[in-house]
């Protein structure tokens, strides 16, 4: 029976581990704080990408911000898609091309968010 190759997780576990290694005893959970801020701020940015037609300059600026914050948490695929939209905006690609990338970012963010929410729940459970 054919088994599809396993998909890489939407968030690189090594990046999360590295961030966890920065934790100082007695301080708030750094990973949980970073993830919470990412889950709080990113949907607002993605709403800015829902306008149609999408303005290239605006899309580029929003995508730049998403690229940075996704990269910091190891959400590599989301980071790559945001980087592609940023470049497409710089090149002045068609509104259709920008919209396709914006849609792909939305879909990938849903994967990342689900993964990170599970991670938050696990960390909260582990802390109990």
């Amino acid at each position: 029976m054919y088994t599809p190759p396993p998909q890489p997780p939407p968030v690189d576990p090594e990046v999360i581990e590295m961030l966890a290694s920065l934790q100082e005893p007695g301080e708030p959970d750094l990973v949980a704080e970073l993830v919470t801020l990412f889950l709080r701020d990113t949907p607002e940015r993605l709403r800015d990408l829902q306008a149609r037609p999408l303005d290239a300059g605006h899309a580029s600026r929003v995508a730049h911000a998403v690229k940075g914050s996704a990269g910091n948490l190891g959400a590599t695929q989301l980071q790559d898609l945001a980087s592609a939209l940023e470049q497409a905006g710089h090149r002045g690609d068609s509104a259709d091309a920008l919209a396709r990338l914006a849609d792909a970012i939305d879909v990938e963010f849903a994967h990342v968010a689900a993964h990170l929410e599970a991670l938050l729940a696990k960390r909260a459970h582990g802390a109990e």
Binding site: L22, E33, D41, N72
Partner: peptide, 18 residues
């Protein structure tokens, strides 16, 4: 930095490591 998670991470590094 305009991104809150970057501010948090950088502040943490500067405070705890530097």
């Amino acid at each position: 930095d305009d991104q809150a998670n970057v501010r948090l991470l950088l502040s943490h590094i500067l405070r705890t490591r530097n």
